[in-house]
Design a binder for these strands. Structure first.
Length: 646
RNA sequence: GCUGGCGUAGCUCAACUGGUAGAGCAGCUGACUUGUAAUCAGCAGGUUGCGGGUUCAAGUCCCAUCGCCAGCUCCA
């Protein structure tokens, strides 16, 4: 007997029963047509596949469900590969999985695919869709499969087969195209009603930059043309939030070809926002028992040799030379923090020591990875190094994670947390790694933070927790990170005197909360779509007149608000009110304060909010209170407080 | 760094298969004195990223270089 999810009755199983047969007895024809696969014990199967005897509950997978779309997109990848092979027989196929929002397939071909090629491929795919070719699953021995792909000269498939350690493999065939594939697939090509090829890009075979560069064609597919259109419109909307675009529109920052790539230049408004963020951070760190320190921008090369950066990080560093001395421009802030620690003897009573620095670092990032403010070559980290006794490590990590949580809540970010464990190339004892890794995971468990494990992705000197935020297009960017370090205290011979009068090695944590101010600001811009909360808005209010008659009153009000610490400017240009309101709106200024005859008569201001709402006339005193109230709003939870006076 | 695409006025974009660069917004000047997302008119603005080449003629074709965009690899 098998139960169908969402259906009351149980269906009796006979041998050789396929998923489709079972479902057809439970679902109406119309509903059945929407089913593309089925799921049992969390595994997806083709509709044609037989049902295991131990399957007690069968989930129909509908085309428009997340699983259904995965199946559809994977099938679309096959149909695309078929089209490519028909148009360009000498192209070799490699792999083609479904991905978030779409799919891709990598090909090895003697010349680059052009946008025109994509059109041709799309057209050829449509033919295949019109043909309603069934997807057929064939199970063959590995040797048979090798022979098949050898005959087709599909060398990449042969390489994949070499690495598989199973005796039989599955192949999928539709029309005359055959591919090595685990499946499942939609019943036939006719299911691909809404698809689009989106771009071509290079991609290394097996992600290895030493292997050949393949050509990756990206595409997407949806259950209906309506869904596809919706997705494309969404994408268009997301692009409008791009911080590089908003940065220009809101006059926050720019890049100059003359200054150099990856070197952001902050304009008055952008610089003001980051100043507010930085000031806020200083307060929050002092409150949490950190000490603010500051080290030099360039340090002798010998010191970078001592720390290991010269050996491990040299290609990312800038060097300069003065009086025949070589100096490295700092790519990290840890060195001077080590030096602060070493300036005197430390007792176990002094620990933990938490050194905080808004440190500007330079890293020579590869040119192809630069991306607006999100990936630059000069940036400011809200960096700290915590030196503590081993018995304090756990509490320190918990405090940092809590700090991160508070900040993320303040900004309203959704984030993903990962723990990266020991990589192959690493130093330190297994015991050290185990202790540190479990301290990190225990901290996350204590605070009920969901996380995934990124096995083998830790730094060579220790495991880490990474916090990732998403940009407008859902690309993930690492912001906060908490890293254990076994090497630096060793290399710098840091110690403290214990209760026993003996020397002991302190444990060290590197950590950032926002990560890089530049990157964080970039993500913030996209998060708020440029409409910053009042406490961060570079211009919080703009006072404007209707005619010249009110000019003087506007000047007076502006000054009064400024005296109250509100970031305010005025617009007394000889323009229509609608024109001036529109400009303020496009600058995303939270409060527009309009002055006409009535306002002067009542010693008031007329308040218009950024969302278009009009609050009517209010006294200046009430307007000040209103703005204060809005500034404080985000701080009402999370144990932070802030009022910024400028 | 690699693969591909793109670089025209401050911004957004136009200029058929090569025929000598144009519009809107912004800017400046003037008129209009204006009630919650664009008042009208005029003026000015470009060695088409930079450097070579092909051609009678290059924004357009070729080469090189710088930068930007997408992706890969790498990272805050």
């Amino acid at each position: 007997m098998v139960k169908i999810s969402g259906i009351q009755e149980e269906i009796e199983l006979r041998s050789e029963t396929t998923c489709k047969e079972v479902l057809s007895r439970a679902l109406s024809g119309k509903k059945l047509k929407e089913v593309v696969a089925c799921k049992c014990h969390n595994r997806l199967y083709d509709l044609d596949s037989g049902i295991d005897e131990d399957c007690s509950e069968l989930d129909p997978v509908y085309l428009s469900s997340p699983d259904g779309l995965k199946v559809l997109r994977h099938s679309a990848a096959h149909i695309m590969a078929e089209a490519v092979k028909k148009l360009f027989p000498s192209a070799k196929v490699t792999i083609g999985p479904d991905i978030e929002n779409g799919y891709y397939y990598d090909f090895d071909f003697e010349r680059p695919f052009t946008p025109e090629d994509l059109e041709k491929i799309e057209a050829r795919m449509s033919e295949s869709v019109a043909g309603n070719h069934s997807f057929e699953r064939l199970v063959v021995s590995r040797d048979e499969a090798k022979k098949i792909f050898l005959d087709m000269n599909e060398t990449y498939k042969l390489e994949i087969l070499e690495d598989l350690d199973q005796d039989t493999v599955s192949l999928y065939k539709h029309d005359d195209f055959i591919d090595l594939c685990r499946g499942p697939h939609v019943p036939n090509t006719g299911y691909l009603k809404a698809f689009k090829l989106t771009s071509v890009a290079g991609a290394y075979w097996r992600g290895d930059e030493k292997r050949p560069m393949l050509q990756r064609i990206y595409g997407t597919a949806f259950a209906s043309p309506k869904d596809l259109k919706k997705y494309l419109v969404q994408l268009e909307e997301a692009r409008k939030r791009d911080h590089r675009k908003l940065g220009v529109q809101l006059d926050l920052f720019s890049f100059s070809e003359e200054a150099g790539p990856g070197m952001p230049i902050f304009h008055p408004k952008g610089a003001l926002i980051r100043t507010i963020l930085e000031d806020f951070e200083r307060k929050e760190h002092l409150k949490r028992g950190y000490h603010i320190v500051q080290g030099p921008q360039i340090l002798r090369r010998e010191l970078w040799e001592k720390s290991g950066h010269y050996d491990n990080y040299r290609e990312n560093m800038y060097f300069t030379s003065i009086d025949e001395q070589s100096y490295g421009i700092k790519p990290m802030n840890c060195l001077s923090h080590m030096l602060v620690y070493k300036t005197r003897l430390r007792s176990y009573r002094d620990l933990p020591l938490r050194y905080f620095e808004l440190g500007k670092v330079h890293r020579h990032e590869k040119s192809g990875v630069l991306h607006g403010l999100l990936r630059v070559r000069e940036f400011t980290q809200d960096d700290a190094h915590i030196l503590c006794r081993p018995d304090q490590l756990q509490d320190e990590i918990i405090a940092i994670v809590k700090f991160v949580q508070d900040i993320m809540e303040l900004f309203g970010f959704e984030y993903e947390v990962e723990i990266s464990t020991r990589p192959e190339k690493s130093i330190g004892t297994d015991a050290d790694w185990d202790r540190a890794t479990s301290a990190l995971s225990l901290a996350l468990k204590t605070l009920a933070v969901d996380y995934s494990v990124n096995a083998g992705d830790g730094a060579f000197y220790g495991p880490k927790i990474d916090v990732k935020l998403k940009d407008a297009l859902n690309r993930k960017w690492q912001c906060a990170t908490i890293q254990c370090d076994f090497t630096l205290p060793e290399r710098f011979d840091l110690y403290y005197t214990g209760k026993d009068g003996q020397k002991h090695r302190p444990v060290m944590l590197h950590r950032v909360i926002l990560g890089a101010i530049e990157r964080f600001l970039g993500v913030l811009i996209e998060h708020y779509a440029g409409a910053f909360p009042v406490w961060l808005a570079p211009v919080q209010a703009r006072v404007m007149n209707i005619t010249d008659v009110q000019k003087e009153y506007v000047e007076k009000c502006t000054q009064k608000l400024r005296d109250k610490g509100i970031r305010v400017d005025m617009d007394v240009r000889n323009e229509k009110l609608g024109y001036k309101v529109r400009e303020a709106q496009m600058e995303k200024i939270p409060f527009v304060l309009v002055v006409g005859e009535k306002e002067i008569d009542n010693s008031a201001l007329n308040v218009r909010l950024r969302n278009g709402k009009n609050l009517g006339m209010q006294s200046i005193k009430d307007v000040v209170e209103l703005i204060y109230e809005e500034m404080d709003e985000p701080f009402k939870q999370g144990g932070m407080s802030y009022r910024y006076l400028y």
